[in-house]
Structure formats: C-alpha cells, structure tokens
Design a protein around this nucleic acid. Structure first.
Lengths: 156, 156
DNA sequence: AATGAAATAAGATGCAC
DNA sequence: GTGCATCTTATTTCATT
C-alpha cells in the first residue's frame, strides 16, 4: 500500500484488461497495450503494492451453486451509537449470505444484498438478523427477479 | 458449458478458495483441500467449462482510480413492452458507469448501481439516461456513504 | 528512470500407472 | 487419484536507451 504516482494511460489500459480477465498472460497483456512483458509486469506489481489492484478472484455463477436468489434489504435503525454500529458490523461478519452492505444517505440507513437459495432461506436469514441486531426500526426485503447487468469492472 | 454432475464437497472447497484468491497455485490449492495438483486441476477445468466458474478478474479499488461514489438508482417505467426493454438494455450497454442492473419485483422496476467520480458526474449520467430512455415514470438516485461490506465470494 | 533481452525459477498441463 | 515428464509462463538480472 505504498505511495504511488498518479496512474497514466498505460496503467489504466492494463487495469481495463485485468478487470475483464485476470488470467491473461503477461505476454498477452504486454502485446495488447504495446509494451514488453517486463515493464508491464513492473507496473502491475506496483499497482498491487499500492492497493490499486485489490486482488484476483474467481467469479462463480450463483444459480449453478444453488444460490439463484438475490434480495436487497433496506434497514432503518433507531440507534446510531458506536456500540450499535459495532454490533451490527459484527453480525454482518457472521453472515456470509450478506455479500454487500452499504451505509446510505437519506431515510434508509443501510442497504444490503443477500444471496440465498430460496425465499424460505431468506426468511430464515431475516429472523437471524432481527434476533442478532437490536433496535431495528424497519427491515424491508426487496426481491430481485433478474440480473440484467452485473460487472466487477469499473469504468476506468 | 457442458452438462455437469452436482458439485461435491471437494469442488465446493476449491470454489471457496478460488473466490478468495484466484492467484493461488495449483499446488497450494491441492494441499489446502487435500489432493494432488492433477485431479484438482481437472476439477477446476471441468467447472470452468460447465460455466460454474465464470472467469477470473482483478478487483480494483474504486477510490484509487478516482471513482469514490456509488449511487443506487431506482427506476420505474411507464412502458413494459419488449421494444422498451430492448432500448433500455441497449442504453445500459453504452453506459460503463452502470456496474449493476437488477430487474426487481414490487413497485420499483429496476435497481442500478452507478459508479462515478462525484455528484456532478452522477447528474451528467442522470441526464444522459433520461435522454436515452423514453417513458421513465420515476428515477430516484440514492447515494451510498460507505461500503461497509463488499465481496464477490458467494456463501458456498 | 524506464525499457527490452536473455537467463532462471516456478508453475501448469498431459501422460503413464 | 498419484507421480512424473514436459512445456509454458512468471520473475529476476542485467544491459540499453
């Protein structure tokens, strides 16, 4: 996570490729951006150490592993103390079906995305959540019907 | 994308590892799950061909590339014809700042997540969206303050 | 200071058992 | 599923611009 000079156009080109396919060989990346493997490799390593590149992960098809349902959960809390936040975060850590949690501006405090096999599993999750976290004023689950677009690639 | 027998415990263990770090060597994965590299490699290749593993990508820190703001956009349409849907999808394709789009049940038709540098950029996006897509009854942007949790790893 | 060429080390793939 | 041979690719060193 060292300090790092601003990314140039070449760095950005490399990031765009790596965001689409982290399995590309150095030779392929280098050829694509117009460089030889060595400087290309150094740029990638520099961006990894600077934390620009957070990691390389495999993406799995949710339906193919029995998790076809995504539910967005809006949460309003009656308590905004540090203690409550800590308890809420601790609960999230123990719930792997929560794949995203955003603290929001506006009327809703948090927006979660929960990935589950079916509606019954969502209900079970909901009960666990309400049991684990106190002072929940409102919890609203909204069901996704279809993922129309979904990418991990940022518009760089 | 061939047909594939159900995933066994070993397949799932491999997926869990690969979802956390796709850069692990075959030897490391094999040792972790208690196998030798070759069968481990065959399982991975089988899951890739079956589409269980969708790909390997690099994850980039949004703030470090000048994209610190995520906005969730709720969309209600007055038109639900096939023609409208096609036009909407086409518009999404041309908008890389839309990283996610879900078709929802309930009152809201679509929920997007848009990644932008700042509020002004979101406003510019909003104008382009409204100009490109007809029959939008309601478009509400909700700003995320903080990503409390975010993972691409499904609870396998 | 950044790049490129060549040598080395590590790992992935395929085969025989 | 295991162990080994081979072949590709990442990584390092060093010369060059």
């Amino acid at each position: 996570m060292d300090e790092m000079p601003a990314l140039d156009a070449m760095d950005r080109a490399i990031l765009r490729l790596l965001q689409r396919d982290a399995g590309l060989s150095l030779a392929e990346i280098a050829a694509e951006v117009g460089l030889t493997p060595t400087p290309c490799w150094k740029r990638i390593r520099r961006m990894e150490q600077a934390g620009v590149i957070l990691g390389r992960v495999a993406l799995v098809d949710p339906a193919k592993v029995g998790l076809p349902l995504s539910v967005f959960v809006e949460i309003e809390s009656a308590d905004h103390s540090a203690a409550w936040i800590e308890r809420f975060n601790a609960a999230l850590d123990t719930m792997p079906e929560v794949v995203e949690c955003w603290r929001m501006g506006g009327d809703v405090d948090y927006l979660l995305r929960v990935v589950v096999p079916d509606i019954a599993s969502y209900d079970a999750f909901y009960r666990r959540l309400v049991a684990a976290v106190p002072s929940l004023r409102n919890v609203t689950g909204r069901f996704a019907m279809e993922r129309v677009k979904g990418t991990t690639a940022l518009p760089i």
